[in-house]
Structures are given as structure tokens and as C-alpha cells.
Nucleic acid binder design. Structure first.
Lengths: 208, 208
DNA sequence: CATACTTGAACGAACGATCGTTCACTGTAT
DNA sequence: ATACAGTGAACGATCGTTCGTTCAAGTATG
């Protein structure tokens, strides 16, 4: 109660940060519903309950709104990094991760936003950088798990664990995209994915 | 020389078909360079050397241009279906296919167009249908190969060969997308992909 | 064979809507 | 009194689409 000075946020700044979050939330909803390029800045402003001009007091351009959202995606990865940091046997950690990540991507929003960002990343290098940066968080952690598993003899020796980590992510993400487009629920696909990955990384002498 | 009537194409129709192709080619170029939504109908018309109004004599809307392009993608798959139809041992056919498909997707155009279509498919059911239809051509052929391999004992028994086929495609396509975004050439990735797939489908008693 | 008639490809101006962005202004908290 | 979040009208550009028109090729008529 004594020193409110320590926190650099006055009431004003607090309200400001709130507005910003509100705008970002609204933008995410719009991008999900209609896609980035089909969403107008007015749509975002209206949805956020903010005037058009004021939105530009918070973000210099529409593009920067997407950049911020792409950056925010990083926070979503925390739970998965936590799983991958566990010291249980590698195959167990791997399977836990696969299941958790697949469950996360079972929500269409997460897949759609990812596709939206990816397709914008094709022609916007700064977004591509953010995308790859986020992805590197997952791959590097996953690589560690795979290396440890190989060292312990729990997994087969991988010529390039980093490459393998990438492939595992691509399997899950690709499956999620297909699930969304085809309407087949992720729950029906997950078993096959786990099985496939397990077969790909298990040591050669593993019993079936 | 005698009966020109047999061919249903007059000079007029011939020229018409040519114009159509020209427009579609131009549209593909535009979509590749700038993306579907960032491309104006005028851009397509100009690039095709056709007037704006005339483009609408050939296609009822911009959307229909993309629909036609998505449909045309089907033809690109012929070489791969041919490979998959071969009767060599399943592992060999599979590896040939993986290599060929990866090489095809090493060209950024093919990946970009695919992403462009996918992201439009999210909100346009008719494009999603075309996309899934084309993909089904590959998966069903690939499924046959996998089933045959399992029956011959060349591949491990798969609980659902069709699911596995999907996953293999997703591996290759996902790798290609990552290659494009990260700048790592497909040639550096292919080895890992082949290795991963081979490990995932080989019978359990296979020597390393 | 020459003629008139029909057809529809080709054209580009114009339409109304919407785009991302700017700006002069107002209200309010410090 | 000053700074600045907040406003919405306005800007110029561009969007996808429609329109009336032109004109050359195809068909029917003489």
C-alpha cells in the first residue's frame, strides 16, 4: 500500500494496457472469423469498442497488430515447454508432449490462426522471423528430449535429432490442419499420430 | 482436310480456350507473387493482356478463377500417381514417391500456391472440397502401396494404412513449407524425411 | 458469290463500396 | 495549464463488378 511508485503503471497506463489487450483480442477474433486480409481496421476497432482513430494511437498500422499477435503466440507454448523439460524417460515425455500439443491444436482457432500467420509470413519477413523464433522454442526443447532418449537407449539413434524434432512437429500440425479441413475430429487421428511417431523413433529392437 | 466438322473446335473456340489459359496463367503468377487477396482482378487482366471487362466474359468472378486453378492442381499429381502404381516392392515405391514428391515441393511456387489455396479453403467450402479431392487421389494410391507392403511383410502391419498415408504426405508437405520459410533448402531436409518415414513403416525386425 | 443479319468476344469507363491511414478536434486526468 | 487518450469525418486509392458499346467472325438469305 505504501509505495505505488515502484510499479511503473499509473491508473492511466493501466487503462492503456487494458485497451491494448482489448484491441488485440478483437483483432484475433476478426482474423479467425474472416482472415487477416478480409478484416478491415474498422472491424477491429468496432469489435474492441474503440474508435478508428484511437486504434492508431495504440498501433502504428494493421500490420503491427498482426506482428504483436504473432509474438503473443509465444506465451501459448509455455505449457508444452514445461512438459518437454520433465526428466521422465524420453519416450514418455515425448508421448505426453504429442498428446498435449495435439489436444491444443484440436481447437480450430489455434490452427486457423497459425495458418493465417504462416500465409502472411510468406511475404512479410518480420512475421516469418517471429514464426520461426516461436517454433524454435519447441524444436530445441524437443531436440533435447530426443537426444537424451537416444543417449539412454530409450530411442533409436537419430542422425539429426533436430531434424527429427521438426518432423514430429510437422506431423502434429499437419494432422491438425487436415482434421480442420476434412472435419474428421482430432481425437480420431491422434492414435495414428502417436503410433507413427513412436514407430519412427523407437529403438530397432523394440517389441511390438 | 475433308471434314473439319469432326473437331468441335472452330478457330473461334480455339482462340477462346487460349485466352482462358492465358488468364489462368496470369492469375497463378499474381497469386504467387502477391497472394490471392492482395491480387486485384485488374492485375490479372493486365498481366494476361486482356481487358478488365473481358476477363468477366471468361470467369464469372475472381473466386471462380481460384476454383479453376485449384482444380487444375489435380493434373500436377499424375506423375506421382504413376510412381505409386508401380508394382516394385512397397518400400522401394514408397521411397521413390517420397523423393519425387519432395523434389516437386522443393520449388517454392508449388508450396506457396498450396498454402494460398489452403488458407482460402478455410472459409470457402467449394475450395476445401477441391483440395481434399485432389489430396484423396494421393492418399488412396499411397494407401494401397502401404497395404500391399504390409501384406508382403515388407512393411510393418499398420493399424490404419490410410491414416499412415495421410501422415506421410503431411510430413513431406510440412517439411517443404518449413524449408521455404526458413530458407533451408529441401535437399538438406530430404534425407531426414526419408529416414523418418522409413523408420516409421519398416517391419520391427529390420536391421539398421 | 455477295448480302444482310446475328452473335458474342473484347473493351474500358463508371459504380458503389471499402480499404488503410491521417488529422483537426474534444474531453479529461494529472 | 498541459499532455494525451479518444473521436469520427475525410482522404485518396483500390476493390470486385457491371455497363453500354464496338467490331469482327459466323450464318442465313439473296
Amino acid at each position: 500500500m505504501s509505495n505505488q511508485e515502484v510499479a511503473p503503471e499509473s491508473k492511466r497506463d493501466k487503462a492503456l494496457a487494458k485497451r491494448r489487450r482489448k484491441i488485440l483480442e478483437a483483432a484475433v477474433m476478426c482474423f479467425l472469423e474472416n482472415g487477416y486480409h478480409q478484416t478491415g481496421v474498422r472491424d477491429i476497432a468496432t469489435r474492441a469498442g474503440v474508435s478508428l482513430g484511437n486504434l492508431y494511437n495504440h498501433f502504428p498500422s494493421k500490420h503491427d497488430v498482426l506482428v504483436e499477435i504473432a509474438g503473443l503466440e509465444r506465451d501459448e507454448l509455455a505449457p508444452f515447454l514445461k512438459i518437454l523439460a520433465k526428466t521422465s524417460p524420453a519416450p514418455k515425455v515425448l508421448d505426453k508432449f504429442v498428446t498435449a500439443y495435439a489436444k491444443y491444436l484440436a481447437a480450430p482457432e489455434n490452427v486457423i490462426l497459425s495458418i493465417e500467420i504462416t500465409s502472411e509470413a510468406i511475404r512479410k519477413p518480420d512475421i516469418a522471423d517471429l514464426f520461426l523464433e516461436n517454433r524454435d522454442l519447441l524444436t530445441s526443447s524437443l531436440t533435447s528430449v530426443l537426444s537424451r532418449g537416444a543417449a539412454d537407449g530409450d530411442l533409436r539413434p537419430l542422425s539429426d535429432p533436430s531434424d527429427t524434432a521438426q518432423l514430429i512437429l510437422e506431423l502434429i500440425e499437419g494432422s491438425a490442419a487436415r482434421s480442420m479441413l476434412s472435419g474428421v475430429p482430432m481425437r480420431k487421428i491422434l492414435g495414428g499420430v502417436r503410433d507413427f511417431i513412436s514407430a519412427a523413433v523407437s529403438p530397432p529392437d523394440t517389441a511390438v
